[in-house]
């Protein structure tokens, strides 16, 4: 499914003393399935992009085209059709929870679609398995979970109805290294086997460097640069946007200052082999 933004601007509280510009003439186009990351410091408008793609708000200027529908000509029937193909995980997972048990929470998305009880239960267990939570979580209260489990549960609530576009807002904040590696495996499977479009809104450049295909850099409400993963290797632009360069990149840059020529590897094991080969 394609997502095309054409000179989109988003202003809130227009014509009042509290007017604020969140996005300023953003244009980009996503046509194939894959993993795309929008990186930027806080207050640069990342969450707004997620909100606009999932049709929660309308832009003040410009047009958005999702899957063949243009936002200016959307009828109610089309909006409902589109919404079942887009899933969005909020930055604060607790603001997505409405029910008092985990099983009710996950099945909330498919309650009104007429599934039989056995297939519903099967789907709930499958989606829990995808995010690596076990059956003992089914009767817990979502508001009592800790951050890691809450984020995984929010992701499971989205995966159960199998959307084509998955938008994740700062999913790696507060996760440990092993959970991040599990997420990397999950996203790779979703991209390769199921051909989904995954949009990551994040300021964690090290995580994005490991899996993303394409990078869009946002800074103070504008889209200042975009490109493949190599954009993250340009330390000057990244630092000017108030972000931390990926850790591998800063190590390799410090290493190459001694006149050597080390490649930018993807993970730490390859990096170690490269250093070993270079030193000896």
């Amino acid at each position: 499914m394609e997502i095309i933004f054409d000179k989109v601007s988003f202003v809130i509280n227009k014509n009042t003393p509290l007017e604020k510009t969140i996005l300023n003439t953003i244009s980009f186009s996503i046509t194939e399935s894959g993993i795309y990351s929008f990186i930027g410091a806080s207050n640069s408008g990342k969450t707004a992009i997620g909100d606009l793609i999932s049709l929660l708000y309308k832009p003040t200027r410009g047009s958005i085209k999702i899957g063949g529908y243009k936002n200016s000509r959307l009828k109610k029937k089309d909006i409902n059709n589109l919404k079942s193909k887009i899933g969005y995980v909020f930055k604060n997972p607790y603001s997505m929870f409405i029910n008092d048990t985990v099983s009710k929470e996950i099945s909330y998305a498919i309650d009104n679609f007429g599934y039989k009880k056995e297939s519903k239960e099967k789907r709930i267990l499958e989606s829990l398995k995808l995010v690596e939570l076990d059956e003992s979580y089914l009767e817990k209260n979502p508001f009592d979970l800790n951050i890691t489990d809450a984020k995984k549960l929010a992701l499971a609530c989205i995966l159960i109805y199998n959307p084509k576009i998955i938008i994740l807002d700062e999913i790696t904040n507060g996760l440990s290294v092993s959970d991040k590696n599990k997420l990397i495996r999950l996203f790779r499977m979703l991209k390769n086997k199921y051909r989904k479009t995954i949009i990551l809104l994040s300021k964690d450049t090290s995580f994005c460097y490991q899996i993303t295909d394409y990078v869009y850099l946002l800074s103070y409400t504008r889209l200042i640069d975009y490109g493949t993963k190599d954009l993250l290797e340009n330390t000057n632009i990244i630092k000017n946007a108030n972000l931390e360069p990926p850790k591998i990149v800063s190590f390799v840059n410090a290493y190459n200052k001694k006149g050597r020529n080390l490649d930018y590897y993807n993970n730490i094991l390859d990096l170690i082999k490269g250093v070993y080969r270079d030193v000896f």
Binding site: I86, G87, N112
Partner: peptide
């Protein structure tokens, strides 16, 4: 407002619910 947003992102339109729901 928060509940409407949270339902909306899961592909649910609250306007289509029956009165009982």
């Amino acid at each position: 407002n928060d509940v409407m947003l949270a339902s909306s992102v899961r592909g649910i339109n609250i306007g289509l619910f029956s009165v009982k729901t």
